[in-house]
């Protein structure tokens, strides 16, 4: 049996989470097909066709799929699913939105947010905000799975030469309509896939002080994150939140500034390769997970760091 992976993209570019999801899919089986559903998404389909290990790309290009509305995407996936042993998507907000619909319409239980593939039917996944790891086995005929992309390496983006088949099936619900999108425009790398992330917490004191982080981020090519405390205090918007209730990140370097290290924050960043903590409270729990800790006032340390990196 084959494996169907649903690609995440914005109609122009493939989201790197898909390449990581492909690594997870390869551990489940070897005949991998990728569905690219979108509007004007031919370039994405071509990109996917070049990814290592992809046997076939299915491209559904129609206005109904342009905004990834869950009703439409799930109906399309269900129409294809019977030919597959596994249906797999990244556990992004898009994947989380449509995959449970796919599962229930196939009358199977879904396995969410896996962090490893033990065998074709056995997976590990975090529960209780990452405070426990469950190993689960699915005996469903079709396994519907979402993948925590940060837990897997990406497959090579180049080197493959899969065929691209066009699909003309259109599923369009008349009960839901796309209205608007506010996408935070930024020159910075995406928080979920950045190589370096620098985050600020309540210690930043206000939103204006995040400019200090930005200057360091500019030197490092880093994305900027925040703790839930900083978001709740209104310093920065929620899409910058790293943690159990925000984004899960695992960059090569994570710098936590003025963040105490609540469990909820650690759940979002403790799989980073190298963690640096800068905090004036030497008892802060963040130091228990940091590879390098600096006890210092962040208002002195950040300008110094910026200079040192110049």
């Amino acid at each position: 049996m084959s494996i169907l992976v649903i690609a995440e993209h914005d109609n122009k570019e493939l989201n790197p989470a898909t390449l990581k999801t492909l690594t997870a899919a390869q551990a489940m089986g070897d005949d991998i097909h990728v569905l690219v559903a979108g509007e004007g998404c031919a370039a994405v389909a071509d990109q996917v066709a070049k990814a290592a290990g992809v046997a076939k790309v299915l491209c559904a290009d129609h206005a109904a799929y342009g905004h990834q509305l869950a009703e439409n995407i799930s109906a399309l996936v269900v129409s294809l699913a019977k030919d597959y042993s596994h249906v797999v998507a990244p556990a992004t907000t898009t994947g989380k939105n449509f995959m449970p619909r796919v599962a229930v319409l196939l009358d199977v239980a879904q396995v969410s947010d896996i962090i490893s593939v033990e065998s074709a039917d056995t997976f590990r996944r975090p529960i209780y905000a990452g405070n426990a790891i469950a190993t689960v086995k699915s005996d469903e005929s079709i396994k519907v799975i979402t993948v925590r992309a940060t837990a897997f390496d990406a497959v090579a983006a180049e080197g493959g030469s899969a065929s691209v088949d066009a699909l003309d099936a259109v599923f369009e619900s008349d009960k839901v309509r796309y209205v608007a999108e506010q996408v935070a425009a930024s020159e910075r790398p995406d928080l979920s896939s950045a190589r370096v992330v620098i985050s600020g917490g309540r210690g930043m004191q206000n939103g204006e002080n995040f400019a200090l982080l930005e200057k360091v981020a500019d030197k490092l090519g880093a994305a900027i994150g925040a703790s839930r405390a900083a978001v709740d205090a209104g310093f920065v918007p929620n899409d910058m939140q790293v943690g159990q209730t925000g984004k899960i990140v695992a960059p090569e370097l994570y710098i936590a500034v003025g963040i105490s290290g609540a469990i909820q924050h650690l759940a979002g960043m403790k799989d980073s390769k190298v963690i640096v903590a800068i905090n004036k409270d030497e008892e802060a729990p963040i130091f228990q997970v940091a590879d390098y800790g600096l006890v210092a006032d962040l208002f002195d340390a950040l300008p110094e760091l910026e200079n040192a990196l110049s």
């Binding site: 469950a134 190993t135 800790g293 340390a301």
Partner: peptide
């Protein structure tokens, strides 16, 4: 349910590293 839990473990603990004196 056709999904069964085989095992529940504590996550791998991350150990504290070193404290550095300054930015340099």
């Amino acid at each position: 349910s056709k999904v069964s839990v085989l095992k529940v473990e504590a996550p791998a603990e991350r150990s504290a590293g070193v404290k550095v004196a300054d930015i340099a």
